[in-house]
Design a binder for these strands. Sequence first.
DNA 1: ACTCAGGTTTGACACCGATTAAATTCATGA
DNA 2: TCATGAATTTAATCGGTGTCAAACCTGAGT
Lengths: 234, 234
Amino acid sequence: MNPETQDLNQATLHYLDVIYRLSQGGEPATTNVIAERLGVTPSGASIMLRRLARRKLVQLTPYKGATLTPQGIKVALRTIRRHRLLEVFLIQVMGFRWHEVDKHAHALETVIDQEFEDRIDEITGHPTRCPHGHVIPTRDGVMPAVPDVKLVIQPIGTAGVIRCIDTDKPEWLEYFGQLGLMPGASITLKSIAPYGGAVTVATSEQTITLGYPLAEVILIEPDRTGDTTPTQSA
Amino acid sequence: MNPETQDLNQATLHYLDVIYRLSQGGEPATTNVIAERLGVTPSGASIMLRRLARRKLVQLTPYKGATLTPQGIKVALRTIRRHRLLEVFLIQVMGFRWHEVDKHAHALETVIDQEFEDRIDEITGHPTRCPHGHVIPTRDGVMPAVPDVKLVIQPIGTAGVIRCIDTDKPEWLEYFGQLGLMPGASITLKSIAPYGGAVTVATSEQTITLGYPLAEVILIEPDRTGDTTPTQSA
DNA sequence: ACTCAGGTTTGACACCGATTAAATTCATGA
DNA sequence: TCATGAATTTAATCGGTGTCAAACCTGAGT
C-alpha cells in the first residue's frame, strides 16, 4: 500500500525510473528502448516488465509498451527526487562538478532512505531543480510544471534564460559548462542552419555555434517582453 | 586480481565485513554467528561461505569456521574504511548524531566508489578514527594498530582517555552520549562490583555507575603516568 | 567407548534478474 | 492480401542468494 514499505529493490527502482522518463511524452515506453537504457537485452526487459506488471507498478500492453500505474509513478518520482537532490548535494556540499554527479547520484538514489533524503533536502535549502535544471519532484510525489521550452523550436531572435541542459552525457555537460551555457545564463537564438545544421546563439559574453544535437538539449524560459531583437542593444 | 575491478556485489561485501570483524580475535568466524549477524539462516550462510571460498575470498574449514584470505581482507578493509569514513562524514558534514550514522553508513558503504571515498576522506580531513573511535583502515588496506584497552580489565583506579565506544547499538550510543562518555573524554575506573556487577567510573564532571555489559564496550588509553590514585587529587 | 546436543552442511526447492535462441506478433508496402 | 522485417515475447537455462527439513559432524560428559 505505502510504497515506502514495499520491498522494492534497486533493479525495480531503476526500471521504474527509466519507464517514467521514457513515457513522459505520452507514448508508452517500448521494450527495446527500456532495455537499451538499462543495458540489458530486450528479452530480459520483457520478462522484468511482466514482473512489474504483476506487482501493479506498470500498465503493460503486450507488443505495445509500458506506462506506469499511479503506484509506479509514485515510486519513480521518489527515486527521481532522490537522484536530483543528490546531484545538488554532490555539487553544493561535496564539491563535485556538474558533469560528474549523475553517476554518483545514480548509485546512491536507490539506497538512501526517507530520513536521508530529508536531510539532504534541508542541507541544500530545499532546491526545486537539479544542477542541470531538471525539476525536482516534491516530497509528496508531485512533479511541478515548468514553462521550459526547447531553444531550437523558438523563432530566430528569441531571447531568454537557460533553465535546463537536458542531457546526461558528461562530455556534453562539461562542454556546456566551459561555454557558460548553464541554467541561469541569458541566451539569444541567432540562427539555425537548415536541415539540422549549426545553431548560433549569443550569451552576454560571446557568440557560440553549436551542432544541432547539442543545441537541442537547451531548454529556456523566453523573456516575457515581446521583443525579439536579435542584435545587441547599442 | 585487483579487488576494485572484481564484481563484488553488496551481499559479498557484507559477508566479508562481518567475517573480518568476527575473526578479529584470531578465532575463525563460525557459520551460526555469521548468519545471525547478517540476518540469514545458518544454511544460507553455509552455502554463501562455500561460494566465497571458491572465489578465494575466505579460507573455509568445514565444521570449523571461516577466516579471510589476504584477498578477502583487502576487500573487507576497503568496505570498513568506507563505512567509517562515511560515519565521520555523516556527523561532520550532514549533521547526523552518532547513534544514527551506523545504519546510513551501512547502506552506503557498498555503493560508493573510490572517487567518492577519496572525496569524503578529503572533506573530513583524513580522519583516522570513526566517531565511535574505531580505527579507519588506510587507503592501501592497512589497519593501523592502536593502544586501546578495555576499561574493565584495568586495575581499579586506572585513569585514562576514552578512545572507543565499541558497540553499534544505537540506544547504548545515545546513552553514552548523554553521559558524555565518548572518545576524548577523561575517565577513571573507580570500582567494579563482583560477578559482572555495576561498574563505577568518574569523569571530569560526574561519577557514573554503569551495568557491566555497557562498561565492557569502553576502550581507553591509560594515562602514561604510573599513578593509579583512585581518589580525586585534593 | 558411546551418546547426545548443538552446530553445520546437504538436498530440494524458489525467486530474481539475467542470457541466448527460437517463436510470435505487428505494421507496412508490394 | 499477403509477405516481410523489425520489435517483442517465450522457452530453456544460468548464477546468485535465500528458505526449510533432513542428514551429518563434533566434542563433552557419562
